[in-house]
Design a protein around this nucleic acid. Structure first.
Lengths: 138, 138
DNA sequence: ACAAACCCTACTAAATCAATAGGGATAGTG
DNA sequence: CACTATCCCTATTGATTTAGTAGGGTTTGT
């Protein structure tokens, strides 16, 4: 199952994507907006940084930014950093009949998750929010 | 990640598929052949039974059988029983932008894992074994 | 009656997940 | 320079899940 950590990571990255071009967002800003435990988020963002997905600026006026444009970052890239592999890979020794299935499942899943980039997600979130406002107003 | 329990389950079902039509296989026979801890396998087979994938016969000459022909049983059905869901589903309340992606990932994965049935797997395993014998003989 | 088999509940040890704690390093500002 | 806001790093904790074990109970063929 997708871990809580992973959903936190995705929400944080989405917030950063939405903010792209502006001043860096601090851990506390993101934590408050997304209701993520701040110290936990700190570890997550550091993890993403060490894997090249985010940049950070230290000291006053510091914070986090995406290290690539939102259009160039996919859900799959974030999930892979946080979750690691989903299927057993390379049992070397005696290859079994399931190996091929795991490989296919893995690449198919990769395909789906690499399809959607964060620029698109921001737009979709905007649309969703507009919808919700309408529904609540009725 | 696919659990050990799940790989045990798949191997056990494959053994039962290979045996289909013959006398029921006992827990100990399967455990020995597949090198699975017997008491753990017992729990797994019971689980599969409670979900309708296997049948059991109690008492002397008892054991386990597939409750459907191997051609009608897929890897996906076994995995779903043992692993449960992989993606967050139905967060009702406030639907988020990730929901759609999870749904698509889930159905794509289902598709791949439901593709391969155990009759096919038995054949593939036969082919694989023949290969190995050849390789070791050289 | 006996033995071979499955059935059921409960327990435990180890690993992982989710989160927290306690500091240290860096950078802008008065 | 002192101060404070920020990220950085390691370790620790409590809860949950995973992997497996234990101890008995029930069924069935001989």
């Amino acid at each position: 199952m997708i871990s809580k950590k992973c959903t936190y990571a995705l929400r944080a990255v989405l917030a950063l994507a939405r903010n792209h071009g502006g001043a860096p967002l601090t851990i506390h800003q993101i934590a408050k907006a997304e209701e993520i435990p701040p110290r936990f988020l700190e570890a997550i963002l550091r993890d993403l940084k060490q894997n090249g997905l985010t940049d950070s600026i230290r000291g006053k006026d510091g914070g986090y930014r995406l290290s690539v444009p939102p259009a160039d970052l996919s859900i799959g890239e974030v999930v892979r950093v946080v979750e690691g592999p989903w299927f057993p890979t390379d049992e070397d020794k005696n290859p079994d009949v399931f190996q091929k299935v795991w490989q296919e499942a893995d690449s198919t899943l990769k395909n789906v998750l690499d399809q959607k980039d964060f620029q698109t997600l921001v737009s979709e979130q905007d649309a969703l929010r507009a919808d919700n406002i309408l529904n609540y107003s009725i």
